[in-house]
Each structure stands twice: as C-alpha cells, then as structure tokens.
Amino acid sequence: MNSLILAEHDGHKLKPATYRAVTAAQRWQSPVHILVVGHSIAAIAQEAAAIHGVARVMLLDAAALAHPLAEDVADLIVRLSRAYQVILAPHTAFGKNVLPRVAALLDVAMLSDVMTILGPKTYVRPIYAGSVHVTVESADTVQVLTVRASSFAMAATGNGAPIVTLAISAETSPATSYGVRWLGATHNVSGRPDLVSARVVISGGRSLGSTAQFQAVLAPLAEKLGGALGATRAAVDAGFAPNDIQVGQSGVVVAPELYIAVGISGAVQHTAGMKDSRVIVAINHDADAAIFQVADYGLVADLFEAVPALTEALK
C-alpha cells in the first residue's frame, strides 16, 4: 500500500509545507505519491518530482481546477483512495478544508495537526491550545491526517520521480453540482519569506497601536534579519496586521530558529503557535507579562525604543 500527500502550492510554486509533509510520510515506509491539483502547474509537478522520498507525482491539470474547491479535491482523493492506506496534507487552510471531507466520505476518523507519528496508527497531537499533548491510536484501515509542518524537517531535493497525468472530466465536478462557485481572492503580498518556514519571525501585538506603527517598528527589524512578520489575534482584530499572519491556536503555528515577540502578553492561545521556536526573545514593558515564561531572553523595555535600537545594533 502507498501513502498519498495532497500538495500545497500557490499556483506558481510548491509550498515548503509540502516538503515537510514528505518527511512525515516516510514514517510508513511505503511508496509516497504526491497529488498536485490546479491549472498550468507542470512546473509545480516538476518541483514535486524532485523531492527525495517521492515515488510518483500525480498531476491533475485542468482549467476548472485553477482555484481548486474542497468539494472537487475531496472527491478526487476519494476516487484515488483505494490504492492508499495513508492520506495526508500539511495542516494549512487548504489541507484543513479538504481532508475532513475526505475522511467523512471514507467513513474514517481524521487526525488534525499531528506533531509526532509514533507508529502506523499512533500519533501525538495538541489539544486545549497546545497546553496538553494527547497520544491517540486510530482504529481505521485508512489513516487521514494533517501534519504540523514545523514538526517535520524539509525533505531534500534532487530526485526525479515519474509524473503521471490524471485525466478526469470536468462534468463530474461535485462543486458544480452542489452550486459552489469560486468568486475571487485577495493576496497579501509582503515580499518577505513564507511565515511558516521562515528562519526568523518578528511578531507584534495590539500594543503596536496602528498599521503604520506595526510596519514602521517591526518591518526594518524583519528586513535586517530576513524574517517574516507575525501578529497576535488582538493585532489582527484591530486591523494592524492581515489575518493570514496570526500566530496561535486559531492561526498558524511556527517554530523558527528565532522568534521575537514584541509587545505581546503571552496568552496560551498565542504561545500555542510559537513555543516550539528554538530561541525566543520577548520585549515587553510589563515585567510580569506571561510571555517571559516562554522566553529564552527577556527584555523589560518600551518597544518603541527597544526595537529600533535592536535594529540599529544589528547593523
């Protein structure tokens, strides 16, 4: 039996999370196939074929799939599922949208945000905003799971796996028959590295006070360190930062080499998304802030003075 990974890409490039999912899939020691769905994505299939540990790339390239909908992707995976004992995807908005649908159609349970794969059916995953880790064993014959990208290393490249082109007719689209239509999307272009795989993440909280200050204070430091920007829910809710950079229980989980928390109180819902970073720095003017409990280096200071000084000192 084989393992199937649902590839994550942005229409141009494979997302780093996919390389990490390949590492996770090696745990089953069975051939790993990657499914790439989209339109005009031959180059992305080539990228997938180059990942070490991939035995086959399955490519479905169709105009109707330019913006793949969960209803269609889930249906496709279910049609391919007979050959697979493991179906996995990175725990991203895309994977989270599709895989529960697959699991329900296959009548199996699903494991979300898996951090450790202990055995072919045994996993460790976070519950209660990561304050508790649970070890669970599945009773199902097919394993459907999303994996936490930051818990698995990037797979290496240099492989040349075969690419199999799937031909599926567009008239069998469940999304169309259910009356689901893609209308549009907005993309936040930052020009900075991908948040989930960045080596350095600089995150700001509500205390930054405005969108302008969020950028003026944090961006130069991110620029200096080649890092990505992150934010708390409070900062996103206040409109200082876009929703897709929210770090935490209901946002994304990151584990960079260096995480700098600026003016962040340290609620568990936030630390759920960053406490596995290798080195954590916290800058907060309240010496009692909970963020200092997870920090390797804490600095009690006004962020509006400390952050520009830090950027300057790193020059």
Partner: peptide
C-alpha cells in the same frame, strides 16, 4: 474511532534569562 492512550503537558522550555 480514536483511542486516547495518554495525555501529558508538553515539556517545559528551559528557563530563560532577563
């Protein structure tokens, strides 16, 4: 369908410095 084998708090980070 999922059997819970055990639960644990994640390991504490080693204490940092100010």
């Amino acid at each position: 369908r999922l059997k819970q084998l055990n639960v644990a708090h994640p390991p504490f980070r080693k204490p940092g410095i100010m």
